[in-house]
Design a protein around this nucleic acid. Structure first.
Lengths: 142, 142
DNA sequence: GCCTATGTAACAATGAATGTTGCATTCGTC
DNA sequence: GACGAATGCAACATTCATTGTTACATAGGC
């Protein structure tokens, strides 16, 4: 995989799980599907577990599973669980600039970008995982 | 500067220019303010010039200037000029996965992210450069 | 001509994300 | 209780986009 694939990986995985909610999947299975590494999968899905979206079981028949109904999970849940800040993260150091405009107003740019970020989350809240799952999915028969 | 600072740099610069539309600024000046390098500034502002947001003059009294009224420039103009794809860029390779869900449906995840990206641009279109410029700006007196 | 500016290419450095290995732990099964 | 299969986690290696830097060509005003 390439870059910033966490969100994509999470969405793919959750989408698959939405198709077969009962099935327990191992990190290795998921990594195969996603063309990546089991450890990477655990890293990403671990965040989703912390956020209460997934559960994981250790041991022999262990693996990953949805913690709640797929239609109760929105993209915002996933996005926030991963600590993504696609827009607002765009600021540089800023440090303590000697520019009077910057220091005096504390760089309103950051403020504006925060607003945009918030709007993005609001928009993400409108889409559920079930909306991502293909409507005509030959794989899960739905 | 740190990471993905292009958008931030562009916004800061345009915001400053909005305060003193007449003034011509050199890459060096701008780089100083932003704590970066003249060449980097030229790279970023060059994109904005291609998009018709700025003009640049070579030679003795050369430099950068707004190409149009600040209140006619939206954040979407800037975002698109820089070819940012904060959301939709999140896909991995995908290559030709052997997963039937992926191949069969061409990964609807990408579709969804494209939609979100579009929403983001729509949201950016609502904010003008003049909205970024501090309302009580001691520097430019406005 | 000279100085100052942009324009651009080529290369170096940085740093975040990803990939990898190794090992501890936990749980079911024999 | 030993074994195998899974997660959990830490430490390290690798990859790669972005940023930073240097160098030089070009253009324009003095």
């Amino acid at each position: 995989m390439k870059r910033n694939s966490r969100l994509s990986l999470a969405l793919h995985t959750l989408s698959h799980m939405a198709g077969e909610p009962g099935r327990v999947r191992t990190s290795a299975d998921i990594a195969d599907h996603a063309g990546t590494n089991p450890v990477v999968v655990r890293r990403v899905l671990g965040k989703l577990r912390e956020a209460g979206l997934l559960t994981s079981e250790k041991g022999h028949a262990g693996g990953w599973q949805l913690a709640k109904a797929a239609d109760s999970i929105t993209l915002a849940d996933v996005y926030l669980a991963l600590d993504e800040r696609l827009v607002a993260g765009s600021g540089g150091d800023a440090e303590s600039s000697h520019c009077s405009v910057e220091t005096g107003l504390q760089s309103r740019v950051a403020e504006v970008l925060d607003d945009i970020e918030e709007s993005l989350v609001e928009r993400l809240r409108e889409t559920k995982i079930t909306d991502v799952h293909p409507s005509s999915c030959s794989y899960c028969g739905s």
